[in-house]
């Protein structure tokens, strides 16, 4: 029994990081109705940035966070101009295909450079012991950092001029344009932020688990599940959805082979979409 509780608590810790990743996906969706299929690969990008900076340059793992954040933003803005900008106003399937195409290229380059070998960044932090159970320090710190960044994003969206403008664009792009908000620039910024969040969450996940170039698919899937749980276009809901998914994983892992976890999550994704087309914590367009 205690084992399950420990597993659940650890699930919540990891779930917060999933929630952060999903915020990146849902931010882009909320602002411009584009599903970013490079999301998983951007998460992997964060992992590899961590690996390169920490092992090749010898940076302390957690200090790679600021460069990953900035780098992710730059990559995101580039992604906007390459693959998203021309898709605005076209059928939604076209942006799905264009981001899918970019993803293929990134995966191709990644496997060309690193193959599908397993990489690992070891972080040694003292754990927190409660009774017989020890919660790894890395999990606790990753969860804390994820929560901190999520909080900063909330403040950014609600307290700054730029954030308010983003929410205005998400709410009604034409009206935002009429009152003089430069929408194109904001769309680029939104994709930049979305990718930066994916990258940072990837960096945090990289301190927890080993990874390959192809790890992105699984994490992307988790982000989708979290997003439908939390409601599309709703970053706060995403964090709650992340915790919900973490709890589910914590409850399921002791009993089910690992290869089935993804399948269960996908079944959940489909069922939730059918039952609650707007997400469980739905506040559509609430950004």
């Amino acid at each position: 029994m205690l084992g399950i509780i420990a597993s659940l608590i650890d699930g919540v810790l990891v779930g917060l990081v999933y929630g952060l990743a999903a915020m990146g996906l849902t931010l882009i969706w909320g602002v411009m109705d584009v599903i970013n299929l490079t999301h998983g690969t951007m998460i992997v990008g964060g992992m590899f940035a961590l690996y390169l900076l920490a092992t090749a340059l010898g940076m302390p793992p957690y200090l790679t966070l600021p460069p990953v954040l900035i780098g992710g933003f730059v990559v995101g803005v580039a992604l906007y101009w390459v693959a998203v900008h021309r898709m605005i106003g076209r059928p939604p399937l076209m942006s799905l295909l264009s981001t899918f195409a970019v993803n293929l290229m990134l995966i191709g380059i990644g496997t060309g450079l690193w193959g599908t070998a397993l990489f690992n960044v070891s972080v040694s932090l003292p754990g927190l012991s409660i009774g017989r159970y020890t919660f790894p320090g890395a999990h606790i710190l990753a969860a804390a950092l994820a929560a901190l960044i999520a909080g900063l994003l909330y403040l950014f969206l609600h307290k700054t001029r730029l954030g308010k403008a983003l929410r205005a664009v998400a709410n009604n792009r034409e009206a935002a344009e009429l009152v003089g908000i430069p929408t194109t620039k904001l769309l680029a910024i939104a994709v930049g932020c979305g990718v930066a969040l994916a990258g940072v969450s990837g960096m945090l996940i990289g301190t927890l688990f080993p990874f390959t170039v192809l790890s992105g698919d699984g994490y992307q899937l988790k982000s989708f599940v979290v997003t439908v749980l939390g409601g599309f276009g709703n970053p706060v809901g995403a964090l709650m959805g992340g915790v919900a998914l973490g709890l589910l994983e914590g409850a399921v892992t002791p009993f089910v082979p690992v290869s089935w976890t993804l399948v269960i999550e996908f079944a959940l994704f489909v069922l939730v979409l059918i039952a609650f087309p707007n997400g469980i914590f739905a506040r559509r367009g609430a950004l």
């Binding site: 693959a83 899918f100 970019v102 293929l104 290229m105 191709g108 380059i109």
Partner: peptide, 20 residues
């Protein structure tokens, strides 16, 4: 030969962007 996916992706992107 190592970059088959890159070529397929680039091809798809060009088509979607310029020749839908």
């Amino acid at each position: 030969s190592h970059f088959q996916l890159v070529v397929a992706g680039a091809l798809l992107l060009l088509i979607v962007l310029f020749f839908p």
